[in-house]
Design a protein around this nucleic acid. Sequence first.
DNA 1: ACAGAAAATGCTGCATACAGAATACAAAAG
DNA 2: CTTTTGTATTCTGTATGCAGCATTTTCTGT
Lengths: 228, 228
Amino acid sequence: MNENTSLERRPDGGPGPIRRTALHDTLVSHLRDMIIEGDLSPGTRLHEGQLGEQLGVSRTPLREAIKYLASEGLVELVPSRGAIVKRFSGKDVHDMLTVLQTLEELAGKLACEAASDAGIAEVRALHDDMVQRYKAGDRLQYYKLNQQIHSAIVQLAANAALADMHGVLQTRLKRIRFIGHEGPEKWAAAVAEHEEMIVALEARDKAKLSEVLGRHLMNAWERVKTSV
Amino acid sequence: MNENTSLERRPDGGPGPIRRTALHDTLVSHLRDMIIEGDLSPGTRLHEGQLGEQLGVSRTPLREAIKYLASEGLVELVPSRGAIVKRFSGKDVHDMLTVLQTLEELAGKLACEAASDAGIAEVRALHDDMVQRYKAGDRLQYYKLNQQIHSAIVQLAANAALADMHGVLQTRLKRIRFIGHEGPEKWAAAVAEHEEMIVALEARDKAKLSEVLGRHLMNAWERVKTSV
DNA sequence: ACAGAAAATGCTGCATACAGAATACAAAAG
DNA sequence: CTTTTGTATTCTGTATGCAGCATTTTCTGT
């Protein structure tokens, strides 16, 4: 089975920029993706021996990666019983969205103050690209660009702590949002909200952008609510 | 030398609920405290061999603990060169405070809605206790109760994600705040703000509590600014 | 004496080995 | 047939060993 499940390891790389990434670091990303994409569903025990063999790594870096993810809140450490993928209740999700909403509102305000014109233009470009994907019906790319836009706005706020906190919550929620496939009319509404966002950003209208971001997030929640 | 530097381990505990804590978990708390209290100052390299010997543990659980703290943002992982205690710039601190302010404002609003009367009474008790410590000039206990009160209000908000994010930032800032020894008049101002907070909480005045919390945090920053 | 290169040392990164705890299973007693 | 207890297996938790990279020191040439 798992022929190519293992992480690519160059036993002896030819030339090239060598291997600068630590294994535990690679594993963090890999496991995170596995959790987000549902390869590891909530409640699943992370079996060190089995999982390690499946990925072609030993237990040590794997355990280190798990500890990292535990701090991120994606897995839960149970003493003497290993780690399980954290399961979020409806209230948990709602709580996260409440905080995320507040953070995005803050990000909107800060972005209007701190962003460079070039930065705003980049977000606009992402947005236009996303609209194209929307029109083409490409849900996956739409979804990815959507995330990118929100992250980009946070980046424009130029606040490292804000970016950190936002990133953590975004990651925790990705698993949920990924499932959310809204219908055509709701999808259109989401795109319209995005358009509003960009316009507000370009006008550097703090209050407006903040308001739209907050509303957008809560609407997004309404759209996928049923699937949780 | 380090006779009692090592973590207490009961080789065979007497009665009692046995030892349910994993070593790496204990190490996380221990290292965190060492960083906050300045035993490990910013820029210090976390030498696995040396530190492990000093604490009486092997490198494996120590490394796991370091990975956990890295995710918390207290240490920085440098590939092939280990971990160093993260150094925060003035802007970093300001950024964190901005976010923390927003989170506390949110906590205030939510707490006014969700808190039980008993919960509010507990915070009031903490506050009264803190005022006693203030009058007695007991800075350390005052400081601890101060932190407890802020955490307690966040708890009253009954939002796990909020508590998480707040906790992370609070931890990162503890190291800074710990240094801040304000003068008598500023100290008095801080106590007065706390009094305002409690009153607003007891009145379940969302807007007021939120406003005071935000103001309090920024004032706290002004008070210690010079020491960073 | 100084600059560059090469060797040596020390540390991290990863793998493996061992010990203790938890669980599952089976057998026996009620 | 159900419940309980003893045993065996499996998995986690911790220690140790080995290899590769970084840094520092030393040697050599100018």
